[in-house]
Amino acid sequence: MAIKDLKQFLETYFTAHHCTINEKEDGVFTVQLTEELDRALMNRPFYWHYVKKMGRPGQPMELTFITNPEKREQKGEWIHFGSPRLQQIMNHLKNNECFTQLFQKVETTERTALFPWLVLNVKISYKGKQKKDEIISIGLHLVNGTMKLEMMDILRDLPLQNTISNFCYTISPIIKVRSGFYRVEAVLEDYLQNQDQEWADESQKKLDEEVDLLKHFYVDRTDLEDPEDQMKREIDDIKKRYEPTVTMQVINGGIFYLADNTMN
Protein backbone atom coordinates (compact mmCIF):
# COMPACT_ATOMS: atom_id res chain seq x y z
CA MET A 1 0.00 0.00 0.00
CA ALA A 2 2.28 2.70 -1.30
CA ILE A 3 0.76 6.15 -1.32
CA LYS A 4 -2.21 6.02 -3.68
CA ASP A 5 -4.07 9.11 -2.68
CA LEU A 6 -1.61 11.90 -2.10
CA LYS A 7 -4.20 14.25 -0.72
CA GLN A 8 -5.33 11.70 1.82
CA PHE A 9 -1.72 11.08 2.79
CA LEU A 10 -1.06 14.77 3.38
CA GLU A 11 -4.28 15.25 5.30
CA THR A 12 -3.42 12.41 7.64
CA TYR A 13 0.08 13.77 8.10
CA PHE A 14 -0.97 17.31 8.91
CA THR A 15 -3.94 16.29 11.04
CA ALA A 16 -1.74 13.96 13.08
CA HIS A 17 0.48 16.98 13.69
CA HIS A 18 -2.50 19.06 14.83
CA CYS A 19 -2.56 21.42 11.85
CA THR A 20 -5.77 22.92 10.50
CA ILE A 21 -6.61 22.11 6.92
CA ASN A 22 -8.86 24.23 4.73
CA GLU A 23 -10.08 22.87 1.46
CA LYS A 24 -10.23 25.77 -1.00
CA GLU A 25 -11.45 23.95 -4.04
CA ASP A 26 -10.96 20.55 -5.56
CA GLY A 27 -7.21 19.83 -5.59
CA VAL A 28 -6.21 22.97 -3.67
CA PHE A 29 -5.99 23.30 0.09
CA THR A 30 -4.24 25.33 2.75
CA VAL A 31 -2.55 24.14 5.91
CA GLN A 32 -1.99 26.29 8.97
CA LEU A 33 1.24 24.89 10.39
CA THR A 34 1.97 24.50 14.06
CA GLU A 35 5.23 25.79 15.47
CA GLU A 36 6.60 22.25 15.58
CA LEU A 37 5.97 21.64 11.88
CA ASP A 38 7.07 25.12 10.89
CA ARG A 39 10.39 24.36 12.52
CA ALA A 40 10.55 20.98 10.82
CA LEU A 41 9.59 22.06 7.30
CA MET A 42 10.14 25.75 6.73
CA ASN A 43 13.86 25.95 7.35
CA ARG A 44 13.92 29.26 9.16
CA PRO A 45 15.80 28.67 12.41
CA PHE A 46 16.78 32.34 12.71
CA TYR A 47 13.19 33.47 12.73
CA TRP A 48 12.37 31.15 15.60
CA HIS A 49 15.59 32.04 17.37
CA TYR A 50 14.81 35.77 17.36
CA VAL A 51 11.13 35.41 18.09
CA LYS A 52 11.89 33.30 21.15
CA LYS A 53 14.61 35.70 22.24
CA MET A 54 12.09 38.54 22.21
CA GLY A 55 9.65 36.39 24.14
CA ARG A 56 7.02 36.42 21.42
CA PRO A 57 4.92 33.42 20.41
CA GLY A 58 5.82 33.61 16.70
CA GLN A 59 3.53 33.07 13.75
CA PRO A 60 3.78 29.67 12.03
CA MET A 61 3.27 29.85 8.29
CA GLU A 62 0.29 28.86 6.24
CA LEU A 63 0.98 26.75 3.16
CA THR A 64 -1.12 26.29 0.07
CA PHE A 65 -0.82 22.94 -1.69
CA ILE A 66 -2.00 22.03 -5.15
CA THR A 67 -2.50 18.34 -5.77
CA ASN A 68 -4.30 18.68 -9.08
CA PRO A 69 -1.66 19.25 -11.80
CA GLU A 70 -4.23 21.03 -13.96
CA LYS A 71 -4.25 23.81 -11.42
CA ARG A 72 -0.50 24.13 -10.97
CA GLU A 73 -0.43 27.64 -12.40
CA GLN A 74 -2.40 28.89 -9.43
CA LYS A 75 -0.78 30.43 -6.41
CA GLY A 76 0.60 27.75 -4.14
CA GLU A 77 2.95 24.79 -4.21
CA TRP A 78 2.29 22.02 -6.68
CA ILE A 79 2.99 18.90 -4.66
CA HIS A 80 3.63 15.58 -6.41
CA PHE A 81 5.71 12.43 -5.90
CA GLY A 82 8.94 14.06 -6.93
CA SER A 83 8.48 17.46 -5.37
CA PRO A 84 11.03 18.47 -2.77
CA ARG A 85 8.26 19.21 -0.27
CA LEU A 86 6.91 15.68 -0.36
CA GLN A 87 10.43 14.29 -0.10
CA GLN A 88 10.94 16.50 2.91
CA ILE A 89 7.74 15.31 4.54
CA MET A 90 8.60 11.69 3.89
CA ASN A 91 12.06 12.18 5.37
CA HIS A 92 10.52 13.87 8.35
CA LEU A 93 8.39 10.78 8.85
CA LYS A 94 11.23 8.33 8.32
CA ASN A 95 13.43 10.10 10.83
CA ASN A 96 10.85 10.57 13.53
CA GLU A 97 8.27 7.82 13.46
CA CYS A 98 10.37 4.72 14.01
CA PHE A 99 9.17 3.26 17.30
CA THR A 100 5.73 2.50 18.56
CA GLN A 101 3.78 0.68 21.21
CA LEU A 102 0.13 0.12 20.43
CA PHE A 103 -2.84 -1.61 21.97
CA GLN A 104 -5.80 -3.08 20.26
CA LYS A 105 -8.96 -1.22 21.20
CA VAL A 106 -11.44 -3.63 22.77
CA GLU A 107 -14.98 -2.77 23.85
CA THR A 108 -15.51 -5.08 26.78
CA THR A 109 -16.65 -5.28 30.36
CA GLU A 110 -14.70 -8.45 31.05
CA ARG A 111 -11.04 -8.71 31.85
CA THR A 112 -9.26 -9.35 28.55
CA ALA A 113 -5.66 -10.31 27.94
CA LEU A 114 -3.63 -8.64 25.17
CA PHE A 115 -0.65 -10.55 23.77
CA PRO A 116 2.61 -8.86 22.71
CA TRP A 117 3.76 -8.97 19.09
CA LEU A 118 7.03 -7.59 17.83
CA VAL A 119 6.34 -6.00 14.45
CA LEU A 120 9.26 -5.11 12.19
CA ASN A 121 9.13 -3.47 8.79
CA VAL A 122 12.39 -4.23 7.05
CA LYS A 123 13.81 -2.90 3.83
CA ILE A 124 16.17 -5.26 2.03
CA SER A 125 18.33 -3.68 -0.66
CA TYR A 126 20.12 -5.74 -3.28
CA LYS A 127 22.98 -3.81 -4.83
CA GLY A 128 25.28 -4.97 -7.58
CA LYS A 129 25.47 -3.54 -11.08
CA GLN A 130 22.04 -2.20 -10.28
CA LYS A 131 19.99 -1.88 -7.19
CA LYS A 132 16.52 -2.85 -6.04
CA ASP A 133 14.66 -2.92 -2.76
CA GLU A 134 12.13 -5.17 -1.14
CA ILE A 135 10.08 -4.40 1.94
CA ILE A 136 9.02 -7.15 4.29
CA SER A 137 6.62 -6.65 7.17
CA ILE A 138 6.95 -9.38 9.72
CA GLY A 139 5.33 -10.06 13.11
CA LEU A 140 6.55 -12.29 15.94
CA HIS A 141 4.33 -13.43 18.81
CA LEU A 142 6.52 -12.81 21.84
CA VAL A 143 4.83 -15.50 23.91
CA ASN A 144 4.45 -18.49 21.62
CA GLY A 145 6.92 -17.59 18.84
CA THR A 146 4.44 -17.62 15.93
CA MET A 147 5.56 -15.56 12.93
CA LYS A 148 3.34 -13.80 10.40
CA LEU A 149 4.20 -12.11 7.14
CA GLU A 150 2.48 -9.06 5.63
CA MET A 151 1.83 -7.90 9.13
CA MET A 152 1.00 -4.31 8.18
CA ASP A 153 -1.80 -5.48 5.92
CA ILE A 154 -3.27 -7.54 8.75
CA LEU A 155 -2.99 -4.69 11.22
CA ARG A 156 -4.51 -2.12 8.90
CA ASP A 157 -8.03 -3.26 9.69
CA LEU A 158 -7.63 -3.26 13.45
CA PRO A 159 -8.50 -0.38 15.78
CA LEU A 160 -5.19 0.50 17.43
CA GLN A 161 -4.30 3.18 19.97
CA ASN A 162 -1.48 4.28 22.22
CA THR A 163 -3.37 3.57 25.44
CA ILE A 164 -4.81 0.35 26.73
CA SER A 165 -8.61 -0.08 26.82
CA ASN A 166 -10.54 -0.49 30.07
CA PHE A 167 -10.66 -3.99 31.52
CA CYS A 168 -7.68 -5.06 29.37
CA TYR A 169 -4.30 -6.17 30.65
CA THR A 170 -1.08 -7.15 28.90
CA ILE A 171 0.70 -10.50 29.02
CA SER A 172 4.44 -10.10 29.59
CA PRO A 173 6.69 -11.30 26.74
CA ILE A 174 8.43 -14.62 27.22
CA ILE A 175 10.76 -13.87 24.33
CA LYS A 176 12.72 -10.70 25.00
CA VAL A 177 12.39 -7.98 22.38
CA ARG A 178 16.07 -8.20 21.50
CA SER A 179 16.04 -11.97 21.04
CA GLY A 180 12.84 -11.60 19.05
CA PHE A 181 14.65 -9.14 16.82
CA TYR A 182 17.46 -11.63 16.19
CA ARG A 183 14.96 -14.40 15.46
CA VAL A 184 13.39 -12.27 12.76
CA GLU A 185 16.80 -11.41 11.39
CA ALA A 186 17.71 -15.08 11.20
CA VAL A 187 14.52 -15.89 9.32
CA LEU A 188 15.25 -13.11 6.83
CA GLU A 189 18.80 -14.38 6.33
CA ASP A 190 17.43 -17.80 5.62
CA TYR A 191 15.05 -16.27 3.11
CA LEU A 192 17.98 -14.52 1.40
CA GLN A 193 20.03 -17.72 1.23
CA ASN A 194 17.30 -19.40 -0.74
CA GLN A 195 16.95 -16.70 -3.32
CA ASP A 196 18.07 -16.60 -6.91
CA GLN A 197 21.64 -15.28 -6.90
CA GLU A 198 21.93 -14.54 -10.60
CA TRP A 199 22.13 -10.80 -10.12
CA ALA A 200 25.02 -11.24 -7.71
CA ASP A 201 26.89 -13.67 -9.94
CA GLU A 202 26.57 -11.33 -12.90
CA SER A 203 27.81 -8.41 -10.90
CA GLN A 204 30.76 -10.38 -9.60
CA LYS A 205 31.62 -11.52 -13.11
CA LYS A 206 31.56 -7.94 -14.33
CA LEU A 207 33.71 -6.89 -11.42
CA ASP A 208 36.34 -9.52 -12.20
CA GLU A 209 36.33 -8.66 -15.89
CA GLU A 210 36.92 -5.00 -15.30
CA VAL A 211 39.65 -5.59 -12.77
CA ASP A 212 41.41 -7.85 -15.29
CA LEU A 213 41.17 -5.20 -17.99
CA LEU A 214 42.50 -2.64 -15.59
CA LYS A 215 45.50 -4.75 -14.68
CA HIS A 216 46.27 -5.24 -18.33
CA PHE A 217 46.10 -1.48 -18.79
CA TYR A 218 48.91 -1.03 -16.31
CA VAL A 219 51.23 -3.62 -17.80
CA ASP A 220 54.60 -2.02 -18.46
CA ARG A 221 53.42 1.47 -17.75
CA THR A 222 56.45 3.62 -17.23
CA ASP A 223 54.92 6.99 -17.97
CA LEU A 224 52.99 7.27 -14.72
CA GLU A 225 54.31 8.45 -11.40
CA ASP A 226 52.53 6.03 -9.10
CA PRO A 227 51.01 3.33 -11.23
CA GLU A 228 50.46 1.13 -8.19
CA ASP A 229 48.54 3.78 -6.28
CA GLN A 230 46.45 4.76 -9.23
CA MET A 231 45.61 1.16 -10.00
CA LYS A 232 44.62 0.42 -6.44
CA ARG A 233 42.32 3.41 -6.38
CA GLU A 234 40.71 2.34 -9.61
CA ILE A 235 40.19 -1.18 -8.37
CA ASP A 236 38.40 0.34 -5.39
CA ASP A 237 36.20 2.36 -7.75
CA ILE A 238 35.28 -0.81 -9.62
CA LYS A 239 34.45 -2.65 -6.40
CA LYS A 240 32.24 0.16 -5.20
CA ARG A 241 30.41 0.03 -8.46
CA TYR A 242 29.82 -3.72 -8.74
CA GLU A 243 30.38 -5.51 -5.46
CA PRO A 244 27.22 -7.50 -4.71
CA THR A 245 25.86 -6.43 -1.35
CA VAL A 246 22.65 -7.01 0.52
CA THR A 247 21.57 -4.53 3.17
CA MET A 248 18.86 -5.10 5.73
CA GLN A 249 17.51 -2.02 7.36
CA VAL A 250 14.58 -1.67 9.72
CA ILE A 251 12.21 1.09 8.62
CA ASN A 252 10.18 1.08 11.81
CA GLY A 253 8.82 -1.31 14.35
CA GLY A 254 7.06 -1.68 17.63
CA ILE A 255 5.28 -3.78 20.19
CA PHE A 256 1.65 -4.42 19.39
CA TYR A 257 -0.63 -5.79 22.11
CA LEU A 258 -3.37 -7.72 20.41
CA ALA A 259 -6.31 -9.74 21.62
CA ASP A 260 -5.83 -13.48 21.41
CA ASN A 261 -8.43 -14.24 18.76
CA THR A 262 -7.33 -11.46 16.41
CA MET A 263 -4.68 -13.29 14.46
CA ASN A 264 -6.47 -16.53 13.75
Binding site: T12, L93, N96, F99, T100, L102, N252
Partner: peptide, 11 residues
Protein backbone atom coordinates in the same frame (compact mmCIF):
# COMPACT_ATOMS: atom_id res chain seq x y z
CA UNK B 1 5.92 6.18 20.87
CA UNK B 2 4.60 7.09 17.47
CA UNK B 3 0.85 7.10 16.80
CA UNK B 4 -0.66 4.43 14.59
CA UNK B 5 -1.44 6.96 11.85
CA UNK B 6 2.09 8.24 11.57
CA UNK B 7 3.54 4.75 11.88
CA UNK B 8 1.47 3.70 8.87
CA UNK B 9 2.33 6.82 6.90
CA UNK B 10 6.02 6.13 7.38
CA UNK B 11 5.57 2.63 6.07
Amino acid sequence: FTSWDLFQLTY
